[in-house]
């Protein structure tokens, strides 16, 4: 029996399939290793940023600073990491810990994460601009090598996406600790009544988000080869859209790692699709908004059909 929940879960994959099919139809030449690789290049950093956002959304918060954070990581990596690896690693570690501390602050003072992460976005950007007042720096060689690695048969971005989605799925959706993280979003009171610490849970989820943010920044740098504090400004909105497209919800601890990755892929693909459609780049961003709206509208239709319990 296919219930509506399965329909909703299938929606992101359906959307990706439709966009893919449409792209191939319009430009058959993309149906190649080279074509796919090119179109989905930036999917890896976007997917990683989306996963980071997903961890935050799982505990009923929102991160408006992930974009600038990704840019900051790139700046740190293109300078510090390159020239003094030990210091660079320490700096990146500090970034991850900082994310955890923000989670602690938000929980202890019961703060709205929107406002806190809004302020945080300025802080990340400011540090990035301090490190690199104008775009520059160089990506470490090993990073470039990883990101330009040619996997046989299937383009790297697709493999990476499946890997990322798969690993996070295992961690969050099947592990016993992942249950606690999701429970924290579903019914924080029940979790506390059962003796779990909401503080520890929030800090853990934010720290993991910071970790994926760092991965996103590194992978992006590997692609762009030089760093710019502003390069990932759009990633904040992309990451939120990716999680929602993937079937996640803002409140209730309901997220889908595979869906989030697929959502990110869909958004990355939509841009390429529109180029092939010869739609002017002016409409690229608009189309992404339209896709978001259409998918959410479909979801609303499916949801309103669900029997009220």
């Amino acid at each position: 029996m296919i219930n509506r929940r399965h329909l909703r879960a299938a929606l992101p994959f359906l959307s990706l399939a439709i966009v893919l099919a449409a792209t191939f139809y319009v430009q058959p030449r993309t149906m190649s290793y080279f074509g796919l690789n090119l179109m989905l290049q930036y999917a890896i950093p976007i997917a990683l940023a989306t996963i980071a956002q997903m961890f935050i959304i799982t505990v009923n918060d929102l991160d408006l600073s992930i974009g600038p954070f990704v840019g900051l990581v790139g700046c740190i990596s293109a300078t510090l990491l390159l020239n003094d690896p030990l210091l660079g690693v320490l700096a990146l570690l500090a970034c991850i810990i900082a994310y955890g501390l923000v989670g602690a602050l938000i929980h202890i003072r019961n703060l709205p994460s929107i406002v806190v992460t809004l302020g945080l976005s300025f802080v990340w950007l400011g540090i990035a601009v301090l490190i690199l007042p104008s775009p520059g720096g160089k990506a470490p060689v090993w990073l470039k090598a990883i990101m330009s690695f040619q996997m046989p048969w299937v383009p790297l971005p697709i493999i990476a996406a499946i890997l990322i989605g798969g690993v996070v799925h295992l961690a969050l959706m099947t592990s016993s600790l992942g249950v606690i993280g999701r429970g924290a979003g579903g019914n924080p009171k029940a979790l506390q009544r059962a003796g779990w610490s909401m503080l520890k849970t929030k800090v853990a989820m934010f720290t993991i988000a910071g970790f994926f943010g760092v991965l996103a920044g590194l992978s992006l740098l590997g692609l762009t080869t030089s760093a710019d504090g502003h390069v990932a400004d759009r990633y904040t909105l992309y990451s939120i859209a990716g999680v929602i497209l993937g079937g996640g919800e803002f409140i209730g601890g309901r997220v889908s790692p595979m869906g989030a990755v697929v959502g990110a892929l869909t958004l990355a693909l939509a841009g390429a699709f529109l180029i092939f459609l010869k739609i002017s780049p002016d409409w690229q961003i608009g189309a992404q908004g339209a896709i978001l709206i259409i998918v959410l509208a479909m979801r609303a239709l499916i949801t309103s059909g669900e029997a009220r319990r």
Binding site: T174, N187, R254
Partner: peptide
């Protein structure tokens, strides 16, 4: 009810019992 609506029945049992962790917990 003190259940997390987004989790399964087994997962809600896990929340009540800390020892339900590690390999094969599910």
């Amino acid at each position: 009810l003190s259940l997390c609506p987004n989790l399964s029945v087994a997962e809600n049992a896990r929340i009540m019992h800390k020892p339900l962790s590690g390999f094969g917990w599910k």
